[in-house]
Amino acid sequence: MAATGGGDIEELVKQITDHPGVQGLIIVNTEGIPIRHTFQEQSRPLAVQYCALFQSLAMKARTAVVELDNNNDLLFLRVRSKKHEVLVAPDTKYLLIVIQRVGNDDNLPVNIKKTP
């Protein structure tokens, strides 16, 4: 993720949020502060809560992956419930969280760029 170019981030945000079924997007920095989210402004506490909860889960998943194989690393995490699905893409500096609706149509493709 480009830290210097603001346009790159805006393009990424638009590309993801325009996808059908996407309900929210949050970008978190290493300190757990949401630097970008697509909720309404008064829902910032919601973004902060999502950050804290899913950043902790991503760290736990990364620990589990490295425990199994020292040379491995976490690339992507999906938490699916009856109603929603939360996609977490960790990176060295940032964490990307996308919340989408689980519809009856399971053919919805999720075309998020793979984190290198």
Binding site: L53, L57, K60, D69, N72, L74, F76, V79, H84, V102
Partner: peptide
């Protein structure tokens, strides 16, 4: 162990009327 730990960690993140369905942990090789 990994599955039980992650399921235990993920379950409280959802709303009260929602239940955990599945988890997918993608790493570099698997």
């Amino acid at each position: 162990d990994m599955a039980a730990e992650l399921a235990r960690e993920a379950a409280p993140l959802l709303y009260a009327d929602d239940t955990l369905d599945s988890l997918r942990v993608r790493s570099r090789t698997s």
